[in-house]
Design a protein around this nucleic acid. Sequence first.
DNA 1: GCCGTTTTCGGCCCGACTGTTTTCAGTCG
Length: 578
Amino acid sequence: MARAPNNKEIAALLGAIADALEIKAEDAFRARAFRSGARRVETAPVDVATTVLEGKLDSLPGIGTRMGNVIADYVKTGASPQLEEARAGIPAGVFELLMIQGVGTKTASRLFNELEIVDVDGLEAAAKSGRLRQLPGMGPKKVQRFQEEIARLHERRGTFRLGDALPEMARLLGGLEGATGVTAISPAGPVRRGAATVRGIDIVLAATDANAVAHALGTLAATTETTAELVRGETAGGIPVTLHLATPEDFAVTLLRQSGSAAHLARLESIASEQGIDFGAAGPLRRGAAAVRVATEAELYEVLGLQFVAAELREDRGEVEAARAGRLPRLVELGDLRGDLHAHTRWSDGAHTIAEMAAAARRLGHDYLVISDHSQSLTVAQGLTPERLREQRLEVEAVDAEFADLRLFQGTETDILTRGGLDFEDAELAELDWVTASVHTAFQQSREAMTARMLTAIRNPWADSIGHPTGRLLNAREGYELDTDAVFAAAAETGTAMEINAMPDRLDLSDELARRAVEMGVDIVINTDAHAAEQLGLLPYGVVTARRAGITHEQVVNTRDVEALREWRRARMAKAGL
DNA sequence: GCCGTTTTCGGCCCGACTGTTTTCAGTCG
């Protein structure tokens, strides 16, 4: 590991050891110690790697000498002999079973020990054959749920989150741009379009020498194939990489072709053919025998009689028609955002202090930052009681006074309770500058119950916005069942904003739901939900999602400056009768 | 494995929810 693992990664290690120990079921208390250690590390108010290396274990309750050594080994070498030891004797596929929602270590252990199931495929077969029902406690609903979950697992096999692919893309671009003979380089494919999950990384290069490019890629990733037109490889994290080579003359058209999507390109092709232009599979566009040369993608769209279509829009969701009619809007850009309305601190489950978060927001050039820690019902995140909320206000005000050019506001990310109530009294909410309301519990409620719960929250006059409205975790958990149209209709009526949560493991609202929301007249907020200072820098993921939804800066509440933001809120409250 | 001692062992233990039960086991945030 090039850099020291962060708390989340260390927590994942301790959790993985706990998994292995629980599956072995030899010493439940030892397993529990690792489990609680993982939890403590995840919510530790300090950088655990540093703390352990400095020998300051005393400041980490639940982490003793032995677990300290586990962490130290991992931090120093990037590997964990203790994890290997704990896993010894259990097939790797058994741990894959834990990725299925509803399968914990107890079930995985029984599947392995009693049914000799060693991987997801084995579980699928046992579910299908009915053999699974032999296990006591394994009723029809569980079997059906497992089958649904396995189907989802198959779907996302080979897909990677944008949050994992984009940093790799940036690293590759940096390493390739100086390679011999490379005169132009650009991101392409679904990563360029900002898709929430992708199957690979595509890059287009104007380059003369495929072998030189392959050599350069070899220093950055494992190269697997080289031809005159492309070089393939795979990153250390297993993400397939394709480098598409073009001549300098054909760079723009190759970039367009390799940026996709297939559906968007098919629409362009048919427009081109109306004009007697052959799109072709490679090389320049042709009109009859003559090559149609274009220097940029913008020129290419112009030749076709279209406005330039931003890469994020190229999904054939009406953008071609809009481009033809000259109706494409100017999409929201990162530079339009003036602040972040959703961030956590050590007061609940964040890693940094209010002052550290404020300093990071200032470095990003934000005009304002809302401190929005969890509310008391979320005990696992050390949510704030009304008393602690009042105490926190003093600290927010004190830190705010230290920053001349950043306004610090106190908000909350209040839980939406199971019946839709918020986790603070009206009088307490009235003291806050911004209220985000989010669902964190009882995800399994029926569609009707969840929709009613959400509508109640939206109609609460104190709720300014709904955080991560569907609760999805990319490649990990489906969102809860929800009638999103009913939710958006209510939000449009009350003026409650819907969040595009920029956390790369959420991107919630999705691009498609965000598009639907603005069509229905809902205002959008783009927030990071940062739990650490560096995560305040994740706003671009939210912006790209908003752009895919065709959203403009007017539709995003936090493109407003402090005064206009206050005005937006006053207007919303007035409408709510406050 | 951690902790706190009645100081080197013995106790440790989230709560809501679901599905399968008929009083509870397992999962999960």
